[in-house]
Design a protein around this nucleic acid. Sequence first.
DNA 1: ACCGGTCATGCCCGTTCATGCCCGGTCGTG
DNA 2: CACGACCGGGCATGAACGGGCATGACCGGT
Lengths: 253, 253
Amino acid sequence: MYAPERQQEILRLARDGGRVDVVSLAEEFQVTAETIRRDLKALDRAGLLRRVHGGAIPAGRLDFEPDLAERETTAADEKDRIAKAALAELPADGTVILDAGSTLARLAAALPPETSLTVVTHSLPVAARLADHPGIQLHLVGGRVRHRTRAAVDAWALRAYGEIRADVAFVAANGFSAEHGLTTPDLAEAAVKRAAVAAARRVVLLADSSKHGQEHFARFGGLGDVDLLITDSGLSPEDTAALARGGTEVVRA
Amino acid sequence: MYAPERQQEILRLARDGGRVDVVSLAEEFQVTAETIRRDLKALDRAGLLRRVHGGAIPAGRLDFEPDLAERETTAADEKDRIAKAALAELPADGTVILDAGSTLARLAAALPPETSLTVVTHSLPVAARLADHPGIQLHLVGGRVRHRTRAAVDAWALRAYGEIRADVAFVAANGFSAEHGLTTPDLAEAAVKRAAVAAARRVVLLADSSKHGQEHFARFGGLGDVDLLITDSGLSPEDTAALARGGTEVVRA
DNA sequence: ACCGGTCATGCCCGTTCATGCCCGGTCGTG
DNA sequence: CACGACCGGGCATGAACGGGCATGACCGGT
């Protein structure tokens, strides 16, 4: 196994599990701890991991509350399936907007290498994953970066989205329902999402079923703005039907 | 079998198996390892494969940039010392601009946790390192992202820098000399650096001594624009004195 | 058919890389 | 505050690398 392969795998393990430790990695890959330390150092220098005594934690973590880590990994499966399903909605050779959020980050990671696209995003983790994808023309939307979500917000971001027109926007929401629309806890972030939605001809909402019925502080649109919702099978058939009656197509991955 | 045929086949094998190695390819095709290396180099240059020690991996399979880590190992020591020395130039509680480049990334990683600063950058790696630094208000400059440097360039970036005013800009250059000023290989990137330099009251150039005397395609300023140069001890005392005569203070870390 | 030029390949050899081992220093936990 | 785990630098080693050169095949023009 080559060093970069091992490092890639370490990175994956770190992201999945929220942490890795030197000794078990050494065992896992059948190399000495020194080698693992070197790998971790390289990944740390590349800004992908944060080194800690005894191991490392992923640097790009969107959500680093320890108690949420477990829930995060259990939802990982749904999010991966949703991201996979979203691939089918990519235009053949056009422009897409990718919102911030862990599902979007997974979508970015899942883009096949032969993809040819123009991508616009205000999410740092999404940008980091796409920056070296050879087929992708990446445009970064600037702005003040919120620590919690690592997404750019405020004036620069709003203006940038106001100046472009994309084929599809893939957006995430912390809560969605027919009654209360699309909501998220932060006002500034909601404003950016609204601008992103307005900049696209077609809007695809990626949200696992646990988000359904939730409502948060800031609303950035109604379900009527959403052309397609991709969620998981946890959404009940009745809810699905209700949403479909509202004009939103629903895919349950 | 012709070389392009062989390369095509190597590419297919790499994509099928996820990896190839020099020795078995040499055996497989009944040629020497040198020939295979040349093939792999060609495919790497074409962006179809990623070369690793001992073989190659299909492009896009790794979602990080080994190139970045690799470049960091060159003159890593000097760069670390330069970054450390640059810490002394940070304002107590003001606004700084951080350019793209491995030395700047080191600087970002070396910021003490208790630092309180506003940071503006158009570099993705720098932003990734600072995004979760609690004391830092991070402002991301958007734009088209260049694959090679992971830095934002073009209209959005230029306009953003045109709208701000910072206490200090820390910039990097691929080449610097009293005669030819500050140069870099890419025009778009040079334009952004120029804008960053213009947006700051004080300009600090971080460049290891191997950059001295080099000149590249695009010039973004003269040494007269630089208030302070931080470099390593590889810069000869005569060169140091010559630069100092030009009005640029020099620190050799 | 001849001939200079280019290209692909092979061979040689000094250099670099990845890894393992060792040892003195540091961390953090009890 | 003491001890064990962890860290990082230094060194050794074998594999891989890559630049330079030679050889022979092919090509295009005369």
